[in-house]
């Protein structure tokens, strides 16, 4: 029974022809990670993509294996924080948020205060950090907005912060000023009113 289950699990990686782009040793190691992830119910596609990225970029086998192992671990951390019902896209975005510096607690808090899917909220968090916003500021801002803001509002928030940073504002200050401006937390209202730098989604004649 155990053997049958193991064989079934192993087929996931073995049957994926895309992994043939890896050299034999690397393929075996990556397949083991993929199968292991599959065995515990984690999404395997992100892991396969990471391996393929490594191949196309000419990375060494060791580097590819290290990258996919790390990704599998992070996907597991993300799922622990978000719960087993989290979708693959949410888990991938959560990994990005974790790697940006958000703690598992932040992810769990986000899950508690916001209706799924959390993909955009998590992505905005990660992207804010990528723009230079300190991780704790980005997490605090997204958590503050999360209960009420629509995904579109979160995206607008991120764009406004990015734009202010482009204009020369320090990232942390840009985040807090935009947050305190309060233009992004009211669902169903126009979030661009009185706010000169928000992106346009306008209807014109």
């Amino acid at each position: 029974m155990m053997l049958a289950a193991l064989l079934l699990v192993t087929q996931v990686a073995v049957q994926d022809p895309r992994l043939e782009r890896l050299d034999p040793d690397t393929r075996v190691a990556v397949a083991a990670v993929v199968d292991s992830a599959h065995g515990v119910g984690l999404p395997v596609e992100p892991i396969i993509q990471r391996a393929l990225e490594g191949v196309t970029k000419g990375a060494s086998g060791a580097r590819i294996v290290a990258a996919v192992r790390r990704l599998a671990v992070d996907l597991g951390t993300a799922r622990t924080a978000l719960g087993t019902s989290a979708a693959e896209a949410e888990l991938e975005a959560a990994v990005a948020a974790l790697r940006a510096g958000a703690t598992p607690d932040v992810l769990a808090n986000l899950r508690d205060v916001r209706r799924p899917p959390l993909t955009i909220a998590l992505a905005v968090l990660a992207d804010l950090v990528a723009s230079g916003v300190p991780a704790d500021s980005a997490a605090a801002a997204v958590l503050a907005l999360a209960p009420k803001a629509r995904d579109a509002d979160l995206v607008e928030f991120r764009r406004a912060v990015e734009r202010d940073i482009t204009l020369g504002a320090p990232p942390g200050a840009a985040t807090s000023v935009r947050l305190n401006a309060g233009a992004f937390d009211a669902p169903g209202t126009s979030s661009t009113q009185g706010n000169p730098n928000t992106p346009r989604r306008r209807s014109r004649p």
Binding site: D164, L167, G168, A169, P170, G172, A173, A174, S176, V177, P196, N197
Partner: peptide, 10 residues
């Protein structure tokens, strides 16, 4: 905005 930012931490 820039004024606000300056007030904050420039």
């Amino acid at each position: 905005f820039v004024h606000d930012a300056q007030a904050l931490d420039l």
